[in-house]
């Protein structure tokens, strides 16, 4: 019986005086893909960055309400670095470190204490395979990661995120900067991953959401307007605002 990975209750978020999230309530199921959609500025990126407390880096950001990961309050007595190990993130713009491919992937495990070369080799290979980029990189592991194409770099970043064996994978518009072929490869990848990971993806592209997600949440002006099974939300949206967005009347 699958349980909730994340439980959000009455979550509000302020950037100084501006309220970016208003009373968000949702439960995110484990081992499936949940998509956040909505027009620019609606708060979806803000919410996803809160789930691994990356918003802590922003000055003046305040969060109230409860966010529970596996029943545990992420703002409570918890080591934030350990949280980020459990909840990985892939950014919109690929950001590989200016190091070799190997070192990029090994960075995460090394951070969390794994230093044995054999073990690291194993992890690197597994991560690259899981990210479907092993074949393209196995002969150039020691070369700089900056030599890869955009699509490859993004898959590298996904591999990097996987290297610490997270439970959750947060993806903030991971394919918006990529070409269609890379996009398609990554979408296939996400579909493969969902058996083992909980994936939460922010996307601007509604077709992408219908292609890969199991559940979808629609956000508007900081509120979560509608949340439900993807098929249902797209074919029979309950809220008018959601319907208008989906049918292209705005956004």
């Amino acid at each position: 019986m699958r349980k909730n990975k994340y439980e959000l209750k009455n979550v509000d978020l302020w950037y100084s005086d501006f309220q970016a999230l208003k009373d968000v309530n949702m439960d995110i199921m484990e081992k499936e893909v949940t998509a956040f959609i909505g027009p620019s500025g609606c708060g979806k990126s803000t919410l996803i960055k809160t789930l691994n407390r990356m918003n802590d880096l922003v000055e003046g950001c305040r969060v109230t309400g409860k966010i529970h990961l596996d029943g545990q309050d992420i703002f409570g007595n918890i080591n934030v670095n350990h949280l980020r190990k459990r909840v990985g993130m892939v950014f919109q713009k690929p950001n590989p470190f200016p190091m070799s491919i190997y070192d990029n992937i090994a960075f995460g495990p090394r951070t969390h204490g794994i230093t044995a070369k054999l073990k690291l080799d194993e992890i690197v290979e597994k991560s690259l395979r899981d990210a479907a980029i092993w074949e393209e990189t196995k002969d150039r592991l020691k070369k700089s990661a900056l030599g890869l194409s955009g699509g490859q770099q993004q898959r590298l970043c996904i591999a990097r995120a996987l290297s610490v064996s997270p439970e959750v994978l947060l993806m903030d518009e991971p394919t918006s900067a990529l070409d269609p072929i890379s996009t398609s490869k990554i979408e296939d990848l996400i579909s493969d991953l969902k058996g083992d990971y909980t994936v939460i993806i922010v996307t601007h592209n509604m077709q992408q959401a219908t292609r890969i997600s199991d559940k979808t949440a629609f956000f508007l002006l900081g509120e979560m307007v509608e949340f439900g099974k993807t098929e249902t939300l797209f074919s029979m949206p309950k809220d008018k605002r959601c319907e208008d967005y989906i049918t292209g009347r705005f956004g």
Binding site: M54, N81, R84, N95, G108, T111, R160
Partner: peptide, 18 residues
Amino acid sequence: VPDELYEGAVALGASHTR
């Protein structure tokens, strides 16, 4: 150095110092 690199590292669970 671009901030994205820092964010990438932190997102992997690295401490600020690291």
